[in-house]
Design a protein around this nucleic acid. Structure first.
Lengths: 282, 282
DNA sequence: TATGATTCAATCATAATCGATCACGGACGC
DNA sequence: GCGTCCGTGATCGATTATGATTGAATCATA
């Protein structure tokens, strides 16, 4: 019984029952309450469930009972709403590693833009409570940052788009005009030779604007996104500075990314371990 | 049997029965009356039911047939927001009645501004899913309106102020400039002859701007707010069009409000229902 | 208005749960 | 073989929920 197996079973359990308890999971998974608590806390941190006293509760909007594939694909586009059913646990691990690696590019005092998306959402979840200044259009990320007391959060004005869970002003820039960020962290539907791709028109609009306000563009994309199908181009490769991905990327893909002048950063599980080690030394 | 389970069962019970008693819940859930009372009080404070002597009553217009999801989301949305809802339980019934009465002033298609605050938050909770257009600076209200698919929600851009849970741009109007609302629904710290009062400088700033963008100003203030102490004036009485309060308001206060040209609307606290409830139990 | 019954909030004692910490044991590389 | 590292389980003090008790408040009835 490994960590990933347990996590999957816990999520399954919550997809079935609205709430579950530490005791129940202890019995069902055959591990100690301490381990269950650790798992629940971590899953809570990553936004996959809601920790409550005595157990955990499902996050509404993450429950797709019975209807497997079709729904899951649909939810992939939803900001911060991906359930474990969308992508394999392995993929989640990759996203986690990528998000952690992205943290290297933060430094206290810096301004940054964080776009909506599952990986950037994970990144926001892992962010330390430091004196960052974050601009985001994503409601889930806003919620995540609510309890980081040192993080300044700015929202551009606009209208709420429920499906994407973003705030967007189609007509003017509003707050954006005054905001200038050192970096933008951005997810995507796909990354191809044509550039950064999305499949949602609204996202394209939103992201094009955001990219303009940042000096450096950092793309968070797990390797399944590379050369994946998507219809709309947000920006060409030439505008991208860094791509953070996992070790599933092909040499060929790495090649044409670097040929476009992009720094390709590979977040492996080992790299994550190293980071954890370094962190614990301090 | 944990808190979340009990709460769900209590809400289910009310969805089925409209009223329920402490005794009945005690027996059905197998916990002590003390726990039931605590639960009912908390649920009342969170706006999920109406506490009455001996038990609890369903909030009219808040019946979520069969599907637990709707209720769960509400319960969930309130996690970690108890600091936001720190009003006394005594006034909760009044606030609820006031919020309900305020709904009379809505009509589909209308634009409105909803200010932050406990009473306006309750109002947003009770709002039907109609084609309203709402501008708000309040994060909790935004969260509440997330699942009202027909309601257009607009946010002014700006920075997050955690303590007040609002988005505010101290320097410019942003989206506000383009927004024009038929009405603004606004809460307050106090309502005196000097006008609408707050005690938080940020709120004053924010509210002054909002009031300017609305044709009609509707104040939601339970009677304890009348002539209560507060230091900062948001606007004079002359700018207020309607005050919705409960029947605890004194004749004198009603007098000087009406003398200022204000329509005073008194929301009945459903006293009849409560009496009928108790009678039917015996 | 007076009285008894019921309900209530406040208080305290107990039990459950939690997070932090340490110890054990297997996996892995040297 | 040997040590290091990570995940797990166990322990302990602290926190939090629950249940019982009590006196006050509220209500129904006379």
């Amino acid at each position: 019984m490994h960590l990933q197996d347990r996590w999957k079973l816990i999520i399954d359990e919550l997809n079935h029952d609205r709430v579950t308890s530490v005791d129940e999971l202890t019995e069902r998974l055959g591990v100690s309450p301490a381990t269950i608590r650790r798992d629940l806390n971590e899953l809570h941190e990553l936004g996959h469930l809601l920790r409550v006293r005595g157990g955990a509760m499902r996050i509404e909007g993450k429950h797709f009972s019975g209807k497997p594939a079709a729904d899951d694909r649909r939810t992939q586009g939803l900001q911060g709403q991906s359930s474990f059913l969308d992508s394999s646990i392995v993929n989640a691990a990759a996203k986690h590693a990528i998000a952690r690696t992205a943290l290297d590019y933060l430094k206290p005092g810096a301004s940054m833009i964080i776009d909506g998306g599952t990986t950037t959402f994970t990144m926001a979840s892992l962010m330390a409570n430091e004196s960052y200044h974050v601009l985001t259009t994503s409601i889930p990320i806003l919620q995540r940052l609510l309890d980081r007391s040192k993080v300044r959060v700015t929202l551009p004005g606009g209208e709420l788009f429920r499906e994407q869970r973003i705030i967007l002003n189609p007509y003017e820039d509003g707050m954006l005009q005054n905001f200038s960020a050192a970096r933008i962290f951005i997810g995507c539907q796909a990354l191809t030779k044509n550039g950064l791709m999305q499949s949602d028109t609204l996202l394209v609009q939103s992201e094009r604007r955001l990219i303009e306000r940042a000096d450096q563009v950092i793309v968070l994309a797990d390797s399944s996104k590379i050369d994946a199908p998507a219809s709309l181009s947000v920006c060409p490769l030439s505008m991208i500075d860094v791509v953070i991905t996992d070790d599933g990327i092909s040499q060929a893909a790495k090649g044409w990314l670097e040929a476009a002048g992009i720094t390709v950063r590979i977040a492996s599980v080992e790299a994550e371990d190293i980071k954890a080690t370094e962190a614990s030394k301090r």
